[in-house]
């Protein structure tokens, strides 16, 4: 593999967890639920996937348990923000903390343990031989899944009735309610999808990307996924493209090491880039007036409309 192809392959691989988590968050936010707990759900998912895979020797069970863990955590957030209509920001932060805590609790005796049966790279015949673009087809199964999910989730969101319902609930829950869409059910559903995908994103880190347990392996990627959600204008397809930018920066950080730059400084690159990206994007967004879902972060009370 030449340098560019290798770089692209690494970039795609590094961007998968951010993409998966952002896809989930796009659904949650499209329905009006801001879930800042992505980092926590990822961390918990990573630990649980690692733990179950290590002991059951079955990756599928590991991945599934990570999804369930993410889902259960997001259920807490759903309860707080949908049912009791409380503060979504605080609840999301709390979720982040709980997830990180659970992650380190589960992983307490696993630090440094390698995973024997991790997800390996599957080369797709013919496609992987295409120059440069072949890099997209020398990936592990979860990355392929992320391509497919992007397409499916994009299709559902923009081309089906369910997608219209989701966007209605986020943009104008009152109107959705009055035509008989169950606002709470849609919001719960989307929040749970967010949780499942965040859990899966975490699992990717621990069973595919670096199949050795490292404490704090999410390292802020959940927060970057949140930034990517905004960056993608809540569109799964743009999230795919955007994730390569963020993933590329992450890889660049390693590629620049031969230049004798300080590793701690290089490690700040993805975070710096995230801030710069959000700032640049918002210049454009203010100019073009692309908005977030109108009811993002606002609970829906049916009887509030009175007066």
């Amino acid at each position: 593999m030449d340098y560019i192809t290798e770089f692209i392959a690494m970039m795609v691989s590094a961007s998968t967890p951010i993409l998966l988590a952002a896809l989930g968050e796009i659904y949650a936010e499209r329905s009006g639920i801001l879930n800042l707990g992505v980092e926590g759900m990822m961390a918990a998912g990573a630990a649980i996937a690692f733990y179950t895979t290590l002991f059951t020797r079955n990756i599928v069970i590991g991945l599934l348990s990570a999804c369930i863990a993410g889902m259960l955590l997001s259920l807490i957030h759903g309860f707080i923000s949908i049912t009791i209509k409380s503060n979504q920001i605080v609840s999301g932060l709390a979720l982040s903390m709980i997830g990180l805590g659970i992650s380190s609790l589960i992983g307490r005796n696993l630090v440094g343990t390698p995973l024997r049966n991790s997800l390996g790279i599957v080369e797709i015949a013919i496609l992987s031989d295409i120059p440069i673009l072949g890099a997209f087809f020398r990936q592990n199964t979860l990355t392929y899944l992320s391509y497919i999910l992007t397409a499916i989730l994009w299709y559902i969101l923009f081309k089906t009735k369910i997608g219209i319902a989701i966007r209605m609930v986020g943009d104008n829950p009152k109107s959705a309610d009055s035509i008989g869409i169950n606002v709470y059910a849609v919001r719960y559903g989307c929040t749970l999808i967010g949780g499942v995908l965040a859990g899966l994103a975490g699992a990717y880190l621990s069973v595919a990307y670096t199949p050795t347990w490292i404490e704090g392996m999410t390292a802020g990627q959940g927060w970057i996924a949140l930034a990517l959600t905004v960056f993608s204008a809540w569109n799964p397809f743009y999230a795919l493209i955007g994730s390569y930018l963020f993933g590329g920066i992450r890889i660049l950080q390693f590629r620049l090491q031969p230049l004798k730059l300080s590793p701690p400084l290089l490690s700040t690159l993805p975070y710096l880039f995230t801030i710069v990206a959000l700032a640049l994007l918002n210049i454009e967004r203010i100019r073009r007036r692309i908005g977030a879902p109108q009811y993002l972060g606002k609970p829906y009370h049916r009887e509030e409309a009175w007066m």
């Binding site: 926590g40 709390a94 982040s96 903390m97 709980i98 990180l100 805590g101 380190s104 307490r108």
Partner: peptide, 8 residues
């Protein structure tokens, strides 16, 4: 980091 469970 375990104490984060309690914090959250």
């Amino acid at each position: 980091a375990t104490s984060n469970i309690f914090n959250g």
